[in-house]
Simulated assay, not measured.
Amino acid sequence: MSSEFLHLGTEPPSYPLPQKDDVNFITIGRLSPEKDHEKLLNAFSHIAADKNNIKLYIVGEGALEETIKNIISTLHLTNKVFLTGQLTNPYALLNQCDCFILSSNYEGQAIVLLEALILGKPIITTDSPGPRSVLEGGYGLIVENSVTGLVEGMRRFLNGGKLNNKVFDYESYQEEALNMFYEKVCDLNEQEL
């Protein structure tokens, strides 16, 4: 896939594109404390110590960018972890990667999980209410919110374990969400009368 497609621009990416011989994890979100990229990087370092062909793409910008770069350097992951910055079209890169991973300590309705599900990507997420509400019922793997939980989730994926037990039907999901919305609006209107 060309870098123009990934960036929708003329500049080539500053990071290597995912290779088929590698196992490519990806996370997408702002570089901020609640996303806890440090926990993800510490977990990834355990996996990377055992596997040469493993990569992690971190898509996003934020206040913790320099801190994250320092952690990557300290953990000797500069050839395995790539900060892409903010991408106009992150879906092309997401689609080239093998597994989406979310390490947030807390999260609302994680739209990025829905986007990964629509692309049919296996998902690993730490346990918090937002991701749980999207993935419960077998749409992805929910792990303990810790380095150990993330390590176990990544190992399960690398060992061929199935993470998504159900195929995500975005049309049914959208219809169900709209019905819930209209139900709530009708209830509010009836209460006002």
Rank of each mutant, 00 (worst) to 15 (best):
N89H: 09
N159H: 14
Q191N: 07
G9W: 13
L6T: 09
T78Q: 14
K35R: 12
G137Q: 12
E4Y: 06
Q174H: 08
E4K: 13
D50K: 05
S103C: 14
L141D: 02
A92Q: 06
I26W: 01
V167F: 07
P131M: 10
S146W: 14
S172P: 04
M1Y: 11
E61N: 12
A48F: 04
G140Y: 10
D21E: 14
K121W: 09
I28K: 02
E115N: 11
S103R: 04
P33W: 09
K51L: 08
I124E: 03
R156E: 01
K166W: 02
C186E: 11
K51F: 15
I142S: 05
I54V: 15
E38W: 06
I123A: 04
E107H: 10
I72M: 03
Q191Y: 07
V143Q: 00
G161Y: 03
G9Y: 01
E136G: 02
T88Y: 02
L40E: 03
T27P: 03
K80W: 00
N189V: 08
L158P: 00
I118K: 13
L178V: 14
I71N: 05
L150P: 08
L188E: 01
D50L: 12
K20T: 12
I71M: 05
T84P: 04
C99N: 15
F25V: 03
A63F: 06
L150H: 04
S45F: 06
G149R: 05
L93F: 06
E176P: 00
L6I: 15
P18W: 09
T84S: 13
K162I: 14
P131T: 12
K39H: 06
Q86P: 06
S14P: 06
D187Q: 11
P129L: 09
S73H: 13
E190W: 05
